[in-house]
């Protein structure tokens, strides 16, 4: 009980054990933490994604809050309808949450996401980003990173990852944040902050996927941590337009503090085919991203 995690993360469980999630599944852990952070007055909208399966099959359910499954492209619009109707009926204090994968967010769901963000409904949209269509068997998405192997990019993806949090931020919504499972307090605090704000909030959670990224199921947290420590994944929040680094990312502006990106890439089979040149190019993409961040912070 004295562990510092319990100060931030409640013991109550709304995600019950016995789900068909793969061992080491980041979506299961991410959703479990989300429900702990937001509590029972939360309705979850889930489009087609791994969590359609993880929640359990009819007539059983692992989720102890109202849960609506909906079509792949439809989660943000469905949540819009729920949020408006609940407010009209005087239940405006409930959390209306979308829990969607990267395909349902960056690709097929992007129009609906943009529409809901622009209209500013009182929703928390969380994308758990495992960087491919994992539920259908590891096909490339717009969020798949450069040179990653997937079943539809067998020699590596040639395009860079689509930056969804920044696209959402350009809608001038009150809150956008990124998160990583290795830093649960940071994730939970961001969820709470989102819940306390009115309007459209967006959180993008990196979700290292053992079968999809080709690593051992015991390594999910380790790889999540490496993603942050190498600067490949940046923890930040944009609160009412103000950009701020959070957690360990705060100390990584200076390149010498960041581990080489290769340390992260080498842990994953999906990057096993990379040449030194590819590694260098990915390092360059990461470094350029930090240059952008430096400029934003300098205003």
């Amino acid at each position: 009980m004295s562990h510092p995690l319990f100060k931030v993360i409640p013991k109550e469980e709304y995600f019950l054990p016995g789900t068909p999630a793969c061992p080491g599944c980041p979506a299961a852990l991410g959703l479990r933490l989300l429900l702990k952070a937001l509590g029972p007055k939360t309705v979850i909208v889930i489009p087609a994604c791994c969590s359609s399966i993880i929640q359990g099959a009819y007539p059983r359910s692992a989720i102890k809050v109202p849960l609506i499954n909906i079509a792949f492209a439809a989660s943000a619009a469905t949540a819009s309808g729920i949020a408006e109707a609940l407010e009209l009926k005087g239940i405006g204090d409930a959390n209306v949450v979308v829990w969607a994968g990267d395909g349902g967010t960056a690709d097929i769901g992007l129009q609906g996401l943009s529409g809901a963000a622009e209209r500013g409904h009182n929703i928390i949209y969380v994308c758990y980003d495992n960087e491919a269509y994992m539920n259908t068997g590891i096909q490339r998405s717009g969020a798949t990173p450069y040179m990653a192997w997937t079943t539809t990019t067998p020699t590596g993806k040639r395009e860079i990852k689509k930056d969804i949090p920044l696209i959402v931020a350009m809608h001038r919504v009150p809150y956008v944040a990124t998160a990583a499972l290795a830093y649960p307090q940071d994730y939970v605090m961001k969820l709470r902050k989102a819940a306390a704000k009115k309007g459209f909030k967006y959180i993008h959670l990196l979700a290292p996927c053992p079968p999809g990224w080709r690593f051992d199921s015991s390594k999910t947290i380790e790889i999540s941590r490496l993603a942050v420590e190498t600067g490949t994944w940046v923890l930040y929040e944009i609160e009412d337009g103000k950009f701020r680094l959070t957690g360990p990312s705060k100390g990584l502006i200076d390149k010498s503090k960041r581990k080489p990106v290769a340390e992260y890439l080498r842990t994953q089979g999906r990057f096993s085919h990379l040449s030194d040149e590819d590694m260098a190019k990915i390092q360059k993409i990461v470094d350029e991203n930090w240059e952008w961040i430096k400029r934003w912070l300098e205003g």
Binding site: I70, A74, S75, A77, T78, I82, A85, L86, G112
Partner: peptide
């Protein structure tokens, strides 16, 4: 922003 979303929002609101 689309009819697909129009019906999705109707579904959400009716669910509520």
């Amino acid at each position: 922003e689309s009819e697909h979303s129009a019906m999705a929002a109707c579904i959400g609101a009716a669910m509520a």
